[in-house]
Design a protein around this nucleic acid. Structure first.
Lengths: 146, 146
DNA sequence: GAATAATCAGATAAATAACTCCGAAATAAA
DNA sequence: TTTATTTCGGAGTTATTTATCTGATTATTC
């Protein structure tokens, strides 16, 4: 179903984006995120914990607690999140799955894929969460952004 | 683990490539494929059955039976195989998983991904199995290719 | 015709990914 | 200080994908 990134990773991207639309310092609860983004509550909780552990988010317990960005939105790239959740295996595996495909022993699409793979990598490192958030035009997102 | 295509799909690509290196008319058994390509026997059997059903391979039972290409190798593109096994969902889903991302309501990387996605598509439709087979340098493949 | 070697078909098992549940800990607010 | 609300942590469940097993069917070869 998912293309390149796991569902966990997709949820992480969505959640961080959502949080980035909140005023700095304001906390966002799992409850709100799960509801607005339609992500299973407890599943999302695990993912957010992971992001806290990796330093991309901070958290606070108790009433009016929740999650906030661990650094300025412009400093969090898509790649940071993908790396934190899925790792970066896609950067070195043969896209056709040929076990011994390598630079020295390339499969038929090795070069071509190398270009595309770099394109994906560039897409991830060149875009930060502030930009991504700004572009979202979903009503729910807009409601948050004001 | 896999990048874009399922493991089934990767196995299918490898098996069809292997078969394409055999002289036309010669049959290749699951046993040989599973052994040389290190793919689980019965799992591969299912996949090959699928490819037969989709018309990409033909099969023959009995001693000296096995599988052969269902059409000339130059007419089977990578896309044919991917489509047969995985479908083509990767062509229309948001790469970041944003549910309502679309042309009218694009996410921040929508355009950029569209280009890359088309690149992947082109990679798949422009390469046929004859070309892919020719490039393989794995000893097992070479043994088949002579 | 018998033996053998292959695919075909369906059920089952194992591994992984996705998702749920429950109680503990923390903390803000009443 | 109590209560309510939140994250935290670990275990458990479900669904999907990957892999295995067994027997039936088909066809070749002797």
């Amino acid at each position: 179903m998912s293309i390149i990134f796991s569902r966990q990773c997709e949820y992480a991207l969505q959640a961080v984006t959502y949080i980035a639309l909140k005023p700095v310092g304001e906390m966002t609860s799992i409850k709100e995120l799960a509801k607005k983004l339609d992500i299973p509550y407890h599943f999302l909780a695990k993912i957010l914990q992971d992001l806290v552990y990796k330093g991309l988010l901070t958290s606070q317990k108790g009433p009016s607690g929740g999650f906030a960005l661990g650094m300025p939105a412009k400093d969090i790239t898509l790649f940071h999140i993908v790396e934190a959740i899925d790792g970066v295996n896609f950067t070195n595996r043969c896209v056709l799955g040929f076990p011994e495909c390598s630079d020295k022993n390339p499969c038929a699409v090795h070069e071509q894929w190398a270009g595309l793979r770099d394109g994906i990598y560039q897409m991830l490192v060149s875009r930060n969460i502030a930009e991504v958030a700004k572009e979202m035009r979903k009503p729910e997102y807009r409601a948050v952004a004001r």
